[in-house]
């Protein structure tokens, strides 16, 4: 089996600076703190994570808010640079990240589709060939020449999803964006994702919904405080995850009573 994604001992540390009290040049000069080093605090968003995803596999990443899932995805897309560790990727990656979709607000939907296609490495000719499919799938025929700032959240997501699946990536990374669309569109996306799976493409799903994970993934990973807590079949990972959640909530309940 060939690997689509291989991650070895990946870590990402953010430096968080203590906010300085004196913000302007004048104040800092008066207080003589111009060159004083600010105290910094290290935040380890991702800590020594290793896993690999086989080509054609659907892999799930689960974890609570702030567990480091989004940071891990950004590392996988090459948006952030790892502090240490290694990532290797086989094939073209397209991503649907929940934080902003990377549209240029002033540009029309049409121009954004072209720009996104070019960024993902398509030639203009290839984009033109897929353009109608992208617009039809997103159901934005009447709005494609309007600037993106006039779009609703749902319209943006539809366009982003449509671009991501229609540029025919080898690896598709989806960060819980499917909650945004209405039922009909979500159905359509899911159908497209199934088709994507059957064509032997690699899918990386990030979610905190266990049902989604068990329904879709062949293997999964549970990320907690930036570290891998469990990796294996979705049911095993879900079990471990639920046990922890149950433990936490019963602990909270005991605290509340006491």
């Amino acid at each position: 089996m060939t690997l689509a994604i291989h991650v070895e001992h990946l870590s990402k540390t953010f430096k968080r600076y203590q906010p300085r009290r004196y913000r302007t040049l004048k104040e800092s000069l008066i207080n003589g703190e111009m060159f004083e080093r600010r105290l910094s605090e290290q935040v380890e968003a991702v800590r020594d994570v290793s896993f690999s995803v086989e080509t054609g596999e659907t892999f799930g990443i689960i974890g609570r808010n702030g567990a480091g899932k989004s940071t891990l995805l950004k590392l996988l897309c090459g948006i952030l640079k790892p502090t240490s560790g290694r990532i290797a990727v086989n094939g073209r990656v397209a991503a649907l990240l929940s934080l902003g979709v990377g549209f240029h607000e002033q540009m029309s939907g049409r121009d954004n589709v072209f720009l996104n296609g070019l960024v993902l490495g398509l030639a203009p000719r290839e984009i033109r060939a897929r353009f109608d499919d992208i617009v039809t799938f997103a159901e934005l025929e009447d709005f494609i020449d309007a600037p993106v700032w006039t779009y609703s959240t749902g319209m943006r997501m539809r366009l982003a999803f449509s671009v991501a699946v229609n540029v025919d990536p080898d690896i598709l990374i989806i960060d819980e964006v499917l909650a945004v669309g209405d039922v009909a569109f979500t159905e359509k996306c899911l159908a497209r994702m199934r088709e994507f799976q059957t064509r032997g493409k690699t899918l990386l799903l990030v979610t905190h919904d266990i049902a989604t994970m068990t329904a879709w993934c062949r293997r999964a990973l549970w990320l907690d405080h930036g570290q891998v807590r469990a990796i294996g079949t979705p049911s095993d990972v879900a079990q471990a995850y639920l046990n922890e959640l149950a433990g936490a909530s019963s602990a909270a309940a005991i605290n509340a009573v006491a």
């Binding site: 060939t2 090459g78 948006i79 290694r86 990532i87 290797a88 072209f114 960024v119």
Partner: peptide, 29 residues
């Protein structure tokens, strides 16, 4: 299997890898 490229790094190959993007951004400008 290739090592993941850091997208934010400036390399001379940018003109080859992202030539179309550069071209269309210039045209847009």
């Amino acid at each position: 299997m290739q090592h993941l490229k850091d997208m934010s790094r400036m390399r001379l190959t940018i003109f080859r890898d992202h030539g179309w993007l550069l071209y269309s951004l210039v045209l847009r400008d």
